[in-house]
Design a protein around this nucleic acid. Sequence first.
DNA 1: GGTGAAATATGTAATTG
DNA 2: CAATTACATATTTCACC
Lengths: 144, 144
Amino acid sequence: MDALDRRLLAELQADARLSYNELSRRVSLSAPAVAERVRRLEADGVIDGYHAHVDLTRAGLPITALVQVQCYGTRCVLRDPAVATWPEVLQLYRVTGGACCVLLVAVPEMARFEELIDRLGGYGQPSTSMILSTPVPWRPVTAP
Amino acid sequence: MDALDRRLLAELQADARLSYNELSRRVSLSAPAVAERVRRLEADGVIDGYHAHVDLTRAGLPITALVQVQCYGTRCVLRDPAVATWPEVLQLYRVTGGACCVLLVAVPEMARFEELIDRLGGYGQPSTSMILSTPVPWRPVTAP
DNA sequence: GGTGAAATATGTAATTG
DNA sequence: CAATTACATATTTCACC
């Protein structure tokens, strides 16, 4: 990973739909050279995918929350692969501290959130922080 | 937003670099029709951008954490726009509950994390949950 | 990593249902 | 009025230097 790779990473994080041609202009390299470097970053797993970022409110999911779950030993959220497939679960982290995991969830309405908390309650003690606003929904990673 | 828009959203969330041509094949529509629908989703703000997803560990940022900050009234993280520009801060949420905000942060090494916590300490009482693993780093949004 | 030619994809305008 | 077709332009992908 040299400086050129880092520039390509920055460009593709800012706009994943840039053409190899446009990228080649921005980093002053030929298009095939850029395409090969990007393919290498993908093959090495540095680039994990390319995703359209959807505005949750405009997509009909105005209610978001961070939910910590303090699981009951064996019956843990992290031990049930089904939880990761629930459509409400946008992110799931295993963490240190009182809780064993934190989930970022999004739902269309409160009734659905209540139902989700009930479901999570089967795995452990959920503790909810409703998200009031998201000053930084996402930020490009700058490799050191 | 009809069923076709939702299918396009799903495809572009799974792979933001799909060509209009390929998208048109997948949803059985002509390429110009697809391009116009995608442009409308962008103009309406439903699609907020397209981002390459970078593997933090492979990009040299193996240490990640969720940090809650219980701010000191006036000197709040949310009132200082500079915090949102710190490269360590990947996500920032304003939340209900004891803390006023939660930050997802990533750093190359512990020394840097210690320094970050010190900086955050200037705004309020930070409470850290180190991230042990990320079973779900990201998940496509399914509009209701 | 660069160059050039063939295959593919994109954007625009006219046209249809 | 949104989708399709047709065509000009731009991009991607090879083979080769």
